[in-house]
Design a protein around this nucleic acid. Structure first.
Lengths: 369, 369
DNA sequence: ATTGATATTC
DNA sequence: GAATATCAAT
């Protein structure tokens, strides 16, 4: 059975608000490590991946893996019945067809209890390979929201270009063309290093979860990946085969020859090497899980209003603004957002929060410049 | 002629906002005691009763009784032309076909004057017997609003159950079932006593208004009463006649045999059994007008965030959430609301304010458990 | 921009 | 009664 107590129902409410328009039904895969949700958006163009590690909960218990098929519209309604600061406990018996939610007001005798019906949903367990990217832009989530909303008024797509100059978001429309350029906040020059999604939480989680067996391998993502990623829904079999490039999520660690990136190959072991990978000569300890954040350089530790750009290679990709605007609704969950890109590969938009994250993958438009 | 000066136009605005969706046209019955409005809602399912006693006004004068037929939509528009803190004076000549409204800004030389057309409306003077109830729940009006709005997302009706445990609001829906339990704030045990709507204002008003002639008679409400209450609009004549059964409002009980409820009859008489309606034999001196308000007991004196439950008998009734949500719009007029219930009798939802009130009556759904 | 209310249709 | 769509209010 599952029993997860969240100290703030608001966290779940925000999460649902962020993804309910993208996905209508999804399995909340619960196991002893926590709860994850992965689903393609309704039109199968984007992929959403959410994780709440067990430590994210005030109390967490899950005897055995169980997928909870949830209609997000229903869950949204039920969550609207909770106040943001209510203590929220999720419970589900094994094989249950209902999810029980209890809301306890922190300072009152009010107790609300809801039983939401569950449904069977095809478990299209998506396999999302953890890849490395050519560039990562870390910026205030509100800034990202503002940019995509502004540009969405001009046109339907945006070209995101990361260069030494900074990151430029440009959109052309009937009535006007526009672009927004963000430079590295501290003006320091842009340097590349191993770039892959990472969060403090991830570090911990991954290590523990995979033990050391899981390699943080630094696989770079090749063109094919996107296909795979976005498509695997349709063709996951492919990946199973072994195209090596395809892979989805697990990387085989290194093949190491990364043609695109030259430096990735060797990771340094600063701290625990697992997490960090990067290399080239600059090797900046990208980020050590927790030890010494590499904050010194351009890492994600800067204050929340800063823009950090990490780039190993110039990238220029075009995406549908409609989706980005949707993704940007997750801004309420984190003050910062990371945009990870490699040419011809799906963009990864990551919002990390304490012991969890929401990540969105969106394939670039072809013919992008 | 009528001349009533209200120190805050906002009060009237809030009142109109609260009832305009329920009633489109109504008579403002003015006499020397003040102004009252009673009307069935547009679908004749609920009854709204509003009272502004003369002392509620900064100045009040009404030479002789006069009904002012008002289209609430028009009045709402006219009131939107007033600022909440404007001093508002209502004037109407005898036999006038217009209501004159003057808004004076408190600190300026601004004076706005409007003349709103009046209309003739059948004076279905509803006769609402003042009855005693088996249970009264006094809670923050915002809490009530929250509960009915939350539950209205799940289903269309709510079962309100008052027991020793507290008061539970439960609704079942397609996607989920939910319930909210409120316990007596101070944890004191629930005790019964005479339960009937009361407010300081009411006490004064009623006595004076009716003089001693009007009996505060402790009429218990029998099934018939309700009928009358809710239905008379259509058929007031009817009531006058005496058909007893139609209704909506009441089930006429009994004929006494209550097939539905078996135990009602004997309930525990904790407290004062008076309420127990049912009865056919139990008559209880319902309440004393003003003498000793039964306030001594659990009355409305608690702080605004508390929940007070007074119960003489367990009650379980089912109501349409649509109406309750509508009623709850009156929360802006009072920080607290009283829910008064007896099995098989219309619910009374009362918002009391200085020298006045808004009360709503709603018949329970039959077949409620 | 978001939420609630209204109207219309199945 | 439920869902969609449009409009209004905050």
């Amino acid at each position: 059975m599952l029993e997860a107590k969240l100290s703030e129902a608001g966290t779940l409410k925000k999460l649902l608000d962020a993804i309910k328009e993208l996905v209508t039904d999804a399995n909340f895969e619960c196991n002893e490590e926590g709860i994850v949700l992965q689903a393609m958006d309704n039109s199968h163009v984007a992929l959403v991946s959410v994780k709440f590690a067990a430590p994210a909960f005030k109390r967490y218990r899950c005897d055995r893996p169980m997928p909870l098929g949830v209609n997000l519209t229903s869950l949204t309604k039920v969550l609207k019945c909770a106040k943001d600061d209510d203590i929220c406990t999720l419970k589900a018996a094994d094989e249950a067809d209902v999810l029980n939610l209890v809301y306890e007001a922190k300072n009152s005798d009010r107790i609300a209890e809801y039983d939401m019906k569950l449904m069977d949903i095809d478990a299209d367990t998506l396999n999302i390979p953890e890849t490395e990217y050519d560039a990562r832009v870390t910026l205030p989530s509100a800034e990202f929201t503002r940019i995509v909303r502004d540009l969405s008024q001009l046109g339907e797509s945006v070209r995101i270009e990361v260069s030494k100059e900074g990151v430029r978001f440009a959109s052309d429309g009937e009535a006007a063309n526009g672009n927004v350029l963000l430079r590295q906040s501290d003006g320091s020059h842009i340097t590349g290093s191993t770039i892959k999604p990472k969060t403090e939480a991830d570090d911990e989680e991954e290590e523990e979860a995979e033990g050391s067996s899981r390699k943080k391998a630094k696989v770079k993502k090749e063109k094919n990946d996107d296909d795979v990623e976005m498509e695997d829904d349709d063709k996951d079999e492919d990946k199973e085969k072994e195209d090596e490039d395809e892979e989805d999520f697990q990387p085989k660690e290194n093949e190491d020859g990364e043609e695109e990136k030259d430096d990735e190959g060797e990771e340094e072991d600063s701290g625990s090497k697992k997490r960090k990978k990067k290399a080239n000569g600059t090797s900046k300890p990208s980020k050590k899980p927790k030890t010494s954040k590499s904050k010194g350089k351009a890492t994600e530790d800067e204050d929340s209003s800063s823009v950090v750009i990490e780039m190993n290679q110039h990238v220029s990709l075009t995406f549908s603004l409609k989706y980005l605007v949707n993704f940007s609704k997750s801004a309420s969950l984190s003050p910062k957002v990371q945009l990870m890109m490699s040419n011809d590969v799906p963009l990864l938009v990551a919002y990390d929060f304490n012991q969890g994250y929401i990540r969105y993958y969106l394939a670039p438009k072809i013919g992008d410049d």
